[in-house]
Design a protein around this nucleic acid. Structure first.
Lengths: 135, 135
DNA sequence: TGAAAATACGACCATTCAAGTCTGAATTAT
DNA sequence: ATAATTCAGACTTGAATGGTCGTATTTTCA
């Protein structure tokens, strides 16, 4: 509970790794998987997702791999989490996640307002950390 | 992912509810379950846990129920989360949760340090919000 | 031209966890 | 006694997560 998924952890490790490389240098999924002892197939899927979302560019073929698109200091951790989880919010409250009407509690939910404020504070924390600061 | 569990949500709702009551007034699990349309059995278990951890005092029997032990402005949200989840840390990183040796990555994990800092910021957010501020 | 190295994509499985339910106690006021 | 409550488990179900596998497709290069 209240943990980042392995997918996100792997994604952050990969992004950090690429950021540490000199710009424009290509990285393969295999190389990263080996280096950090993480399962290749899973990492590969994460990177494919990151590629699809435009964070990294993919190159197929023998000397293929991935390259960072944006500058590390322009890459918020929050963005990467959202991309990997395919959500557009990082939400601690469950009722927020689905459509508000689905939540039976909704109308009587007394903790929502204070926790939304708390949510904003947490979002800020994730927004403020960039990949740049991780390398 | 990255959400509070229903248990925690229900627990916070219950704690807030009791805090809103005049001090010393007894509340039953059934009353709270009805009031907020949450499943009684689940809420009951959450409150039993909170009782065991000393946040509320339980009274059995016909006019039994629960009463807040401490003052609402002394009740950090972080404490309640930890009590309900039976963890002594609220941890976003998975490698942190188990014993560090279990994590194969551990030795090569590059994102740990920065995320621990981020963790601290988040902890602060949960520490700073009290039940008092929710009522 | 064929083999090798890489990404791309989807199906699949196993395990865990959360949520919820149920059953049966023990306690206590009336 | 009976009813209302907490207490303590076991149990079921469903979904999500982590991980694996198989099979394309693309590209380089010997």
């Amino acid at each position: 509970m209240f943990q980042l998924s392995k997918r996100v952890e792997y994604g952050l490790i990969a992004m950090r790794h690429m950021a540490a490389r000199s710009a424009g240098q290509i990285c393969t999924a295999k190389e990263i998987a080996d280096r950090y002892h993480i399962p290749y197939e899973l990492l590969a899927k994460v990177m494919q997702r990151l590629a699809k979302k435009g964070f990294i560019t993919s190159y197929q073929g023998v000397h293929g791999g991935y390259i960072l698109v944006r500058s590390p200091n322009d890459l918020k951790v929050s963005e990467i989490i959202k991309a990997i989880e395919e959500k557009d919010t990082v939400t601690i409250l469950q009722c927020e996640a689905e459509s508000p009407e689905d939540c039976i509690i909704h109308t009587t939910c007394t903790i929502k307002d204070p926790l939304v404020k708390l949510q904003n504070s947490i979002n800020k924390v994730f927004d403020d950390l960039t990949i740049m600061e991780m390398v």
